[in-house]
Structure formats: C-alpha cells, structure tokens
C-alpha cells in the first residue's frame, strides 16, 4: 500500500481499487480502510481533503518521510526474505 503512494498522492477510493486489483492480493476492499487509518495514526501517510467535481470532498493520501523510511526498510527486509526463500526452495524441489 505504501509503495502505491511513492510518487503521488491518491484518492482513497482509487487507492483501494488498485490494491484490490493487484494480482495475487485477494482482499476485500473494506478491510483496506482500517489499514489506511492505522498508517495515518502511525504518521506514515498524511491526508488532505479536496473538493471533487462530483460528490462529497475526497480524502487524498500521501507518504510522509516516516512512511518513506518504513517503505525502504520493508523493501529491504522483503527482498532479503524473498532471496532466503528462493535459495531454499530449489533444494527442496529437486
């Protein structure tokens, strides 16, 4: 979710749609809102309200510097984890 916000701020609805459409991530759209709320409370994302052309004002999400650091840390951890798993799997398979 943080990585979707790397370069841009996103409207909550679009953010949720893109997450739920990501391949392999089967997730109900509604459960993403509590997650967003938590990121907000942890100071990893900031939000701004903006008037929309149609309908009520929309809440836009953007990464904070703390969020960027968290994303970098996670990316590094994830790659290490993935590499470790990759290194183990072939031995198991053959």
């Amino acid at each position: 979710m943080l990585s979707l916000l790397t370069d841009t701020s996103l409207y909550a609805f679009d953010l949720v749609r893109r997450l739920s459409e990501a391949d392999g991530m089967v997730i109900s759209e509604g459960t993403i809102y509590p997650l967003l709320s938590r990121l907000r409370r942890e100071g990893w994302v900031s939000t701004t309200w903006a008037e929309s052309v149609e309908g009520p004002p929309r809440r836009y999400y953007a990464l904070t510097p703390a969020g960027e650091r968290a994303l970098l840390a996670f990316t590094a951890d994830w790659r290490r984890f993935r590499d470790a798993v990759d290194a183990l799997l072939p031995e198991e398979a053959t």
């Binding site: 109900s28 509604g30 459960t31 509590p34 997650l35 709320s37 938590r38 409370r41």
Partner: peptide, 18 residues
C-alpha cells in the same frame, strides 16, 4: 461483495487498532 463482509472489515479494524 467487493467491499467485503462487514464482520471481516470490523475484524481488520480491531486488528489494526493501536
């Protein structure tokens, strides 16, 4: 359906509560 079962959403909210 895409939004999901209310129970699941609330479970996620509980899980993500500080």
């Amino acid at each position: 359906d895409r939004i999901g079962d209310p129970a699941d959403i609330v479970a996620a909210a509980v899980e993500n509560d500080p």
